[in-house]
Amino acid sequence: MRRITPYLLIAPFFLLFAVFGVYPLLYTGWVSLHDWHLIGGHQFVGLANYTGLLSDPDFWNAMANTGGIFVLATVPQLLLALWLASLLNRGLRARTALRMGILLPNVTSVAAVGIVFAQLYSRDFGLVNWLLGLAGAGPVDWQGSRAGSWLAIATMVDWRWTGYNALIFLAAMQAVPRDLYEAAAIDGASRSRQFWRITVPLLRPTIVFTVIISTIGGLQLFTEPLMFGNGKMLGGSLGQFQTVAMYMYETAFQRFQYGYGSAIAWTLFLVIAAVAGVNALLVRRAAR
């Protein structure tokens, strides 16, 4: 009895994970090997859905959009989060309020954020174009142009996640021994030199962690571009900002091609797993 008790104690998690995690994953894989429609039968087609995907221009377009928006969003986001964290790590007034405050965008409903940002970025009556007009720049067709839409969606993502990452960085920074800074200060190192030479190297595992988390979130990007595109799965007239997750939803739940949609889901899963694997290798190297 004593020997199986530990297993019994951890069993609930694995049971739940099997039912809600592994089973859907495997079932999706099974569906992806079929020509499977919502209505009517389904037929085993082997890997045809996957080979079809490789020559599907809409899929590659969605991949490029997802990757582009991810880079455009994540790089400035993490830099900004680092900077915010280092500011919050100093002796500021109302420090707790500020630390909590930067998390507020993260707890706001993402749909609400999407609706507000879509209005800010609307071409004719949006606040952003109005401000650009005051500065003498012409209106930007945020929804129409590829670069404009990527930028707009990236700001939406950053608005939500910068504060969250800043808090993680802050927690890591507080673990950095004070005496390192004191010693550096005695040696005459400036604040920015201390930041780049002490803080950042010691934060490297944390930075890699946030990169992995951002990668998983970024590659699954869905709600922000959806709300930005007025609730349409198309992601713009030419799919300028249709992400892989949107393409998957469109295929499975609007065209009702469950087989093909499942193949997209599995491909996305494999891409995320591959990127996370690369990240893990980098962590190991960094830790060495």
């Binding site: 067709d141 129409g144 198309l234 713009g236 007239s237 030419l238 065209r255």
Partner: peptide
Amino acid sequence: AIKERAFEPALQSVEQGQ
């Protein structure tokens, strides 16, 4: 579906100059 997801987006892409 053809109207809303094929022809209308195509028309809009020309209208947007894209």
